[in-house]
Design a binder for these strands. Structure first.
Lengths: 114, 114
DNA sequence: TGAATACTGTGCCATAAGGCAAAGTATAGC
DNA sequence: GCTATACTTTGCCTTATGGCACAGTATTCA
């Protein structure tokens, strides 16, 4: 559960940057290479790579190298961890079980115990 | 929309810290004073105040001072902004409109344009 | 009025984050 | 083999983050 908290921190930290959110948006449409992903951004490759590493460390994407090309794919279950927490919060303060109950079940108490 | 992106960054940044998430968890149960909120944490007050300011700047909480006591309350609509974005992402990669469609409508394109 | 309470402000510190340039490595194509 | 491509590594810089101690202000209570 301390682990769960660190996961959450990493995920939210990764989501806290517009470049990384845009990358996730792009990857939502399908896998892409590093250089394809980097194209829209006015940034050097090494700088961009830091964002990729951040996303990979958080578990939000996975990467795999074939030949000289590294392909990135989105890791759907990982964003669900963030959704779970938010849903748990909402359920908490609304004092009811809503349509997102499915997510809430286990997540609610984990985080509150820090 | 650049504004929307900055809002998102601020919100996710605020959520990226376990202390701040725990504060939100506590405030989900109802308003509380700074010192009540600070009690569970092994941290000096000035340090704790930084977290409060971060949460307030992100809009996730509001505070109001009466006498010498500052009371904090959770700002429910603000967490919804984060939920919207996550839902939009999910809708995007699932290639369908799901039960969270309500959130998705406007948010989808805002962020992708950076 | 004097003391306790509840913040608040200031300044400092160490580490992390996000950017760069320049040089290096490893495949792919000619 | 040589060149171009696609990263990757290294080192450096500036700013932001999260913590501290210490001193200050403003209410409240006796």
């Amino acid at each position: 559960m301390a682990q769960y908290s660190e996961q959450l921190s990493g995920i939210f930290q990764a989501l806290a940057d517009p470049t990384r959110r845009a990358v996730l948006g792009r990857l939502g449409k399908g896998p892409a290479s590093i250089s394809d992903l980097a194209k829209p951004f006015d940034m050097t490759l090494p700088s961009f790579m830091k964002h990729i590493h951040c996303l990979e460390d958080s578990g939000l994407i996975q990467t795999r190298k074939e030949g000289r090309v590294r392909t990135c794919t989105i890791e759907k279950q990982r964003l669900a961890v963030a959704e779970e927490w938010l849903s748990a919060q909402r359920a908490l303060w609304e004092g009811r079980t809503d349509r997102l109950e499915q997510f809430v079940t286990t997540a609610r108490n984990k985080e509150n115990s820090k």
